[in-house]
Design a binder for these strands. Sequence first.
RNA 1: GCGGUCGUAGUUAAGUUGGUUAUAACGCCGGCCUGUCAAGCCGGAGGCCGCCGGUUCAAGUCCGGUCGACCGCGCCA
Length: 581
Amino acid sequence: MLRTHTCGELSLKDLGMEVAICGWITRKREFGPILFLIVSDRYGMTQVVVNDASLVEKAKKFSIEDVVLVKGQVIDRKENRTDKYPTGEIEVDAGSLDVLNSSRPMPYDHNKEASDTVKMKYRYLDIRKSLIRENLIARSKITGLVRCCLEKSGFIEIETPVLNKSTPEGARDFLVPSRIWKGSFYALPQSPQVFKQLLMVAGMDRYYQIVKCFRDEDFRSDRQPEFTQIDIEMSFVEEDDVMNEAENMIKKVFEGMKKDVVLPEKFPRISYDEAMERFGTDAPDTRYGMELIALDDIFKKSSFKAFADAANDSSKTVKGVVVENKAKEFSRNIIKKMEVAVQGDGAKGLAFIKKIDSSLESPLLKFFNEKELAGLSEIIPENGVLFIVADSRPIALRSMGNFRKRMANELKLVDKDVVAPLWVVEFPAFELDEEEDRWIATHHPFTDFDIDGLKDDPAKIRSRAYDMVINGHEVGGGSIRIHDVEKQKKVFSILGISEDEAEEKFGFLLESLQFGAPPHGGIAFGLDRLVMVLLGIDAIRDVIAFPKTTSASCLMSSAPSMVKKEQLEELGIKLTGKKEE
RNA sequence: GCGGUCGUAGUUAAGUUGGUUAUAACGCCGGCCUGUCAAGCCGGAGGCCGCCGGUUCAAGUCCGGUCGACCGCGCCA
């Protein structure tokens, strides 16, 4: 090693010691015959004082971010101590200074806000100089805890292929052309789903993998084209077994990362229907109240037509949210802005009723009879506001669910110190794709479900799936799988996948189910999102070392890029819609 | 695929109803300075105003298109 210590560890206990430290010059302050350098690495920063005249001359030529090796004695800063950084009580009195490598001026100022564009282009500098470094260190600790916990529980990590077969359903695949089989393509895995099931047939019993997955869709602040899953599968299990194992793991990870946080002994469970009714989302954040209120009963006979229509039509609903202590504060203007936001979710309008000095106030008041007014008065507390959306069920639920979330953020109702995990269960197994008029699998087509007595209405079937939600983020999801070949074939037929297609795409899976496939199930966690939740970060980019932009390009390497004609010819590929160069 | 915000020195921004040589701070280069803590002081260099086209006597500014970044909708079994 070139160094004896890192830049973060020297202190008064090392006084007098001859040390060697390496790092990047982050500050240089000259005073004629004396000069200070701040040398940093990922452990911290240490001040170097240069007194020797020839060394000062040498150091004057150093640039910010030059990599240096400093040898010298640890001395007390005495009256010049600082508490601005942990090593502020000492400094290294330079005996020798060497530049191991020089640096060009930094392309942007790390101490100020910079555009994402320039930071992404010089990602390695952003990692060196920003909190992203800490996030990556935390991420490593998290995967370490996961591995440790799963290995202790008898899971074995097995790698599955990255070059895969393209499957129908689900997200768009990233394709990789085959040189040997011209005209054929591999697909990068959207998840190792089928392979982990085959490992169960193989008798591997308890498998896990921390693995990259790829989906070629459009991206957001919490979505990247390649992301990482903690993938888990177990044999001879039912829902509770997988959920207990998963809960145990998550608790270990949180305990290892946040010592002061206590997670509930058992994570609460709520059904998909209940989550939608109470929170307007299948990933509820239960750190705050303001749950959705069903108002259909109150308005069934209302003379306000929009409410009465929605209350009496089973495909529609009237939903409300009470915001406390704001009746006097919310002006018409503020409420108008809220309405615009709600309309952004497709709702036709946002009604409101205030209670001030025990009496109700609202432009709609004249439409309500005494029974309705009494019902409303019971719901709305003094100085509270009831917001109402009457619309089709999905729109009313979604818009009020989002309204609740926005309101909680704006009113700062979210307690950042609380961790609220829960399970969402009893998902519908199938939902109707209205555009294509066919059934699609809500989870994925290998999810087991209770088929008895519901042969004719797929909408009523509940699947054996479960999602883990923490603070309103879906961090993981899984299910008990189908291990009976006939049942699996039936699902494909419900989904409109023909027998031929099923054979072609999933033949190897269907075949494996006929060789003693054990009952099995599992779960997969989105590692990036889990890290985000643990660190309280909003952007997935900040927990990934080298992320892509929202249009899936890498500003550092300029991927994706065009390739030589010869490369394409070798693959038997001819371009049709190439963009102008 | 759709919508919103943004794009001006290396960086972050300002730039009026269109009108002289496009400002500032930080950074960079040169000089001064014996204890700094984002050190300070003096001086200097640095611009395809994202790109293409249009309107105009005149465009950083107005209009159209395009590219890119970010945020959201659709999408993401």
